[in-house]
Design a protein around this nucleic acid. Structure first.
Lengths: 204, 204
DNA sequence: ACCTGAACACCGTTCAAGT
DNA sequence: ACCTGAACACCGTTCAAGT
């Protein structure tokens, strides 16, 4: 372990790839998506502006890694939520939705990045799989709802796409303030109302 | 009229403001949001890179105008759809949703721009009113549905926000290809399925 | 009044050179 | 192997100068 630490800390400061991603995530939250330049990220990581090219093919590759970190963060929060509400599928559906929307409100610029056209261009394998994981969890919660008799029978992936669209729309509109610059209470109310409307339509 | 044409066409080529907005819309569709630079828009309009500053305070102001054109375009399509389906509120709901999502699929980069954080920063009065108009039309169609007994009673603005979130989520995810690079048929099916699920939950 | 061209600070990317 | 510094083409913005 010590040797590993020694090694990764060796030349200049090591662990640069992770440091750059972390710097990217932080700058995204602090200054928004337009302030995120490769040169500033490098400066924040205390390396020259050319150093990132040792670890990322280009700017898009770094942004993809930042987006991927976002998907992993979101998926982990969703897994935690699913485990916590394992015994009640109805609560589980609501809490997963809240999870998704709240992630967007907490990390608006990162959510923008995650659903920008990067995925079309960059197409890094690991980004695609991290994104898929998020959708799989959504599908799984729908299947839990079906097994509990809360959600009608039918293609669970199709129903999950509908749920996804609702939650994604809520997240995108709320994070940009279209539902009013509401309090946490107001936010929660809007999420609950929208999901209640949808779940009524999805009922068995 | 002739005098007006003469006047607007006078120095160099006149009507530059409109020409720049049109160039911006066109470039957005052709090359995407990242290719849209002030200098390229100016070149396309055959003026120097400094000329746009006679008509727009900065790049954000030009982008706001392009976003505003998008909202006006969308609102007009929605109005047309509402008029065409005036006699059947059920059809009206579906067609307005289709209108919204199809606009996103036809103009993905412009929709991205319309819901980027420009609205937060730029805050041009006319952009805000164009955006509000879109939401008002959505609310109106919900009220039509309520009057026809298709949609439950209650705060129409609240229900309209739910409908908006669903349609917005669909548009955003579909335009980025998350529902598969489907045919028009597949797209239409996905839209229909999602709206059916939601409208069942909103039923009286 | 409206537009140009030079200038400035910034950006992404490349590459020879250093350790 | 990993990083630096100079260089290049691009960008947004400003401003004195032209018509």
């Amino acid at each position: 372990m010590e040797k590993q630490t020694q090694k990764t800390k060796s030349y200049h400061h090591g662990r640069l790839r992770e440091t750059l991603i972390e710097a990217g995530v932080a700058m995204l939250e602090e200054e928004g998506i337009h302030a995120l330049s490769l040169r500033k990220v490098a400066k924040r990581a205390k390396v020259s502006h050319a150093a990132p090219y040792r670890h990322f093919e280009d700017k898009v590759a770094l942004l993809s890694a930042v987006a991927e970190a976002g998907f992993r963060h979101l998926a982990q929060a969703m897994e935690q939520t699913m485990a916590d509400a394992e015994q009640d599928p109805h609560v589980q559906m609501f809490e997963i939705g809240r999870c998704y929307v709240m992630f967007g409100i907490a990390h608006p610029a990162q959510l923008t990045l995650m659903f920008s056209d990067l995925l079309k261009v960059g197409t890094s394998e690991s980004l695609l799989s991290a994104a898929s994981r998020t959708f799989e969890l959504l599908t799984q919660s729908v299947e839990n709802g079906q097994q509990a008799g809360l959600i009608r029978e039918g293609d669970s992936a199709e129903i999950a796409r509908t749920v996804w669209a609702m939650e994604h729309g809520l997240a995108m509109l709320m994070k940009e303030g279209f539902f009013g610059e509401g309090s946490d209470q107001g936010m929660n109310h809007s999420i609950t109302v929208a999901l209640e409307h949808l779940l009524a339509g999805l009922a068995a």
